[in-house]
């Protein structure tokens, strides 16, 4: 697959989408999170080991925006967990056109901050994205979160 570089403007817009995404989660505006995706989208979280082995099942799988919305509704209304929030740090995005789709690869680090003030590294990994333009806005057609570790500490409820 031949990769072609993108214009500075496209690069900037992709990185702005990444920033909007992490701010949305880190600012705890979870209800807005699904709006960063296309209606028909893929969001999944899978370990690097399983991703390499092409295992079909990961930690989490959503293939439309309604499923994303249900995740957030469940987090808000059903699931029991101690209050906590995330802080994302991203690498720059490697962006290219491949087979007519805008493809981005971005490294991330997520710290988890618990309500009692304790905080620790929670996850590191890579976002493998496909990005499309819908009504003038860049949104995720696909976001595969590949976690470097195969182990989750305690539980994962806030999306990575």
């Amino acid at each position: 697959m031949k990769k072609t570089l993108v214009s500075p403007e496209v690069q900037l817009r992709v990185e702005q989408l990444q920033t909007d995404y992490t701010n949305c989660i880190d600012d705890e505006r979870y209800a807005e999170w699904p709006t960063l995706f296309a209606e028909n989208c893929l969001y999944k979280i899978i370990s690097r080991d399983n991703h390499r082995k092409k295992m079909p099942f990961g930690f989490l799988y959503c293939d439309n925006r309604r499923m994303l919305r249900d995740r957030i509704a469940s987090m808000a209304n059903a699931n029991v967990f101690e209050p906590h929030c995330y802080r994302h740090i991203l690498s720059r995005s490697e962006v290219s056109h491949a087979d007519g789709v805008l493809v981005a690869k971005t490294g991330y680090i997520v710290f988890r901050i618990m309500h009692d003030g304790s905080h620790a590294l929670f996850s590191t990994g890579t976002y493998l994205d496909q990005i499309i333009e819908v009504e003038g806005e860049f949104v995720f057609k696909e976001r595969v979160v590949v976690t470097d570790s195969s182990s989750i500490d305690a539980l994962l409820v806030i999306p990575l």
């Binding site: 099942f57 469940s74 699931n79």
Partner: peptide, 19 residues
């Protein structure tokens, strides 16, 4: 695949067992 969302550390039904 869809039901895999119910189980594991991110499981909608089972995550509480993690804590």
């Amino acid at each position: 695949l869809r039901q895999s969302n119910l189980v594991g550390p991110a499981g909608l039904v089972s995550m509480e067992d993690g804590i």
